[in-house]
């Protein structure tokens, strides 16, 4: 019997996130305490969909958006040269690099520290809204957008590492030193929160809407 393409959820199966074993969803849910299921093969906790995915992703995203403000307005580091301190925000740092003729570097930091975080926030908010509004618009493209955010998000950490390296290396007392600012801490928090947000978002929710619609049309 060849049946039509189907999903694990419609078949009453749960796929293990780690070992990919497909297990049958227990029919009697009254007996299960707290609803925690484990993969029979690798004992990891399995769920058909990430529990409370939308709410948790929203919470992490909103926290990231709030912290995005201090991350961009507070100085990420202060360069002290001959006793004079010059605080730099993310944007002013990029502008200084550009003015100094180091435009490839300016471009790199611009992409990693400004473009990618904003893009990531926009994509994740868009994905959440599209799922909540039950959109059926280009599910494949939205899944690819999700994979891109999941993949590139960590590269924004490059600026945080640069600050750390500068702080460690430029230690010449009052003549030259670099001190990290609160902006760097907020920026790092934004990256971590968006990484967690991308991790809690379940892309299968995008496809559930489409699968359910196809199912309804058949009935």
């Amino acid at each position: 019997m060849k049946n039509k393409p189907t999903t694990a959820r419609l078949q009453g199966l749960i796929a293990c996130h780690f070992c990919h074993t497909l297990s049958e969803f227990p029919k009697v849910t009254e007996n299960t305490k707290k609803g925690e299921l484990r993969c029979p093969c690798c004992q990891s906790i399995i769920h058909s969909r990430i529990p409370d995915s939308l709410n948790r992703t929203w919470a992490l995203l909103i926290a990231a958006i709030i912290l995005y403000v201090p991350a961009n307005t507070l100085p990420i580091m202060t360069v002290i040269l001959w006793g004079n301190g010059q605080p730099d925000t993310i944007l002013s740092g990029v502008i200084h690099l550009f003015d100094g003729g180091m435009w490839p570097l300016a471009l790199l930091i611009f992409i990693a520290s400004i473009f990618i975080p904003i893009l990531k926030l926009i994509i994740l908010v868009g994905l959440l809204l599209s799922v909540q509004l039950k959109s059926t618009w280009k599910p494949k493209d939205r899944t690819i957008l999700y994979r891109i955010t999941e993949f590139i998000g960590r590269w924004s950490m490059v600026d945080v590492f640069v600050i750390a390296i500068l702080v460690a290396l430029v230690q010449f007392g009052n003549t030259a030193s670099v001190s990290p600012g609160l902006g760097a801490l907020s920026f790092a928090a934004v990256i971590i929160l968006t990484m967690f947000a991308a991790h809690t978002f379940d892309p299968r929710l995008i496809w559930d809407i489409i699968d359910d619609q196809i199912g309804n049309e058949k009935d």
Binding site: P5, T6, A8, L13, A15, H17, R147, D208, D211
Partner: peptide, 14 residues
């Protein structure tokens, strides 16, 4: 030993 698996991103069994 894997013959069927569900896609982690769209749940389709293949």
């Amino acid at each position: 030993s894997l013959s069927h698996l569900a896609c982690a991103h769209c749940d389709l069994i293949q």
